[in-house]
C-alpha cells in the first residue's frame, strides 16, 4: 500500500512536469489548454470507476462476498469525486475558452447526469441502516446505472447534436507527440491514484465493518 502511494506520488509529479513543463504552449488557447492534462484523465478514471462498480455489483449479487460490496462502494465514491473534478476543471477551462462556465453541450450534460446518478447511489447507501440490505440495493442500483450510461450517452448526443456538432472537444488531426506523451503520463498517474484511493477506502471500510462487528 505504501509503495503504491509512493509510486502514485512520483507518477503524479511526472504528470505535472510533463503537462506544465515539457508540453508546449497551445497556440490558440494558451496555457489554459494545459488543464486538459487534469480533465481528460479524470473522465477516464470516472468511467473506469463506474465500470468497476458495475462488475463488483454483479459479483456481489452472485457471490455475496462483502469484499465485492466494499469495492463497489469505494469505487463509486472515487468515481463521483473524479466526475466532480472533471466538471470543475471543464468549467474552469470553459470560462476563458467558451466564455461561459456552463453550457448544455452533449458531453457536459451526459457527464453531469452520471454525476447525479451516482450521487443518488451514494445517497441510497447512506440511507440504509441494515448493511446487508444496503449492499444488495446498492448493487441493483449499480447495475441499473451502468446499463443506463449508453442510453444517456445516445439520447443526450441526439438531443444536442442534431443542431450543433460537439466539435469543440475533439482534438485536431495532428496532436504533437509531446502532448500525447504528457497526456499518457497523466493517464497512468491518475489510474494509479484511482487504485490507491480505492485500496485505501476498501481498507477503511473493512476496518469499519470489523469495528462494528
Amino acid at each position: 500500500m505504501r509503495v503504491l502511494g509512493a509510486v502514485t506520488v512520483v507518477a503524479l509529479a511526472a504528470g505535472l512536469v510533463a503537462g506544465l513543463g515539457l508540453a508546449p504552449r497551445e497556440v490558440t488557447q494558451g496555457n489554459v489548454q494545459r488543464i486538459m492534462y487534469l480533465h481528460v484523465p479524470s473522465v477516464w478514471v470516472a468511467y473506469l470507476a463506474f465500470a468497476v462498480v458495475f462488475v463488483a455489483s454483479i459479483a456481489y449479487l452472485a457471490k455475496r462476498a462483502d469484499a465485492a460490496d466494499r469495492l463497489a462502494h469505494a469505487s463509486a465514491e472515487v468515481g463521483v469525486v473524479f466526475t466532480g473534478v472533471t466538471i470543475a476543471t471543464g468549467s474552469i477551462w470553459g470560462k476563458p475558452t467558451w466564455g461561459t462556465w456552463w453550457t448544455w453541450d452533449a458531453r457536459l450534460t451526459s457527464v453531469s447526469i452520471l454525476f447525479v446518478m451516482y450521487l443518488g447511489y451514494l445517497l441510497l447507501r447512506g440511507m440504509i441502516d441494515d448493511r446487508e440490505r444496503g449492499a444488495r440495493y446498492a448493487a441493483v442500483l449499480g447495475i441499473v446505472a451502468a446499463f443506463n450510461i449508453p442510453l444517456v450517452h445516445f439520447s443526450v448526443i441526439w438531443w444536442r447534436t442534431l443542431h450543433q456538432p460537439p466539435s469543440l472537444m475533439t482534438p485536431g488531426p495532428a496532436m504533437p507527440r509531446v502532448i500525447i506523451t504528457a497526456l499518457l503520463v497523466n493517464f497512468v498517474a491518475f489510474s494509479l491514484l484511482y487504485v490507491y484511493f480505492v485500496a485505501k477506502r476498501v481498507h477503511l471500510l473493512r476496518r469499519e465493518a470489523e469495528a462494528a462487528a
Binding site: 447526469i113 447525479v116 445517497l123 441510497l124 442500483l141 446505472a145 439520447s155 443526450v156
Partner: peptide, 15 residues
C-alpha cells in the same frame, strides 16, 4: 429518495 434515484436514471426516456 425515490424521485432522487429515479429522475436521473429517467433522463434518456424523458429526452
Amino acid at each position: 429518495l425515490f424521485p432522487v434515484l429515479l429522475l436521473p436514471v429517467q433522463v434518456p426516456v424523458l429526452l
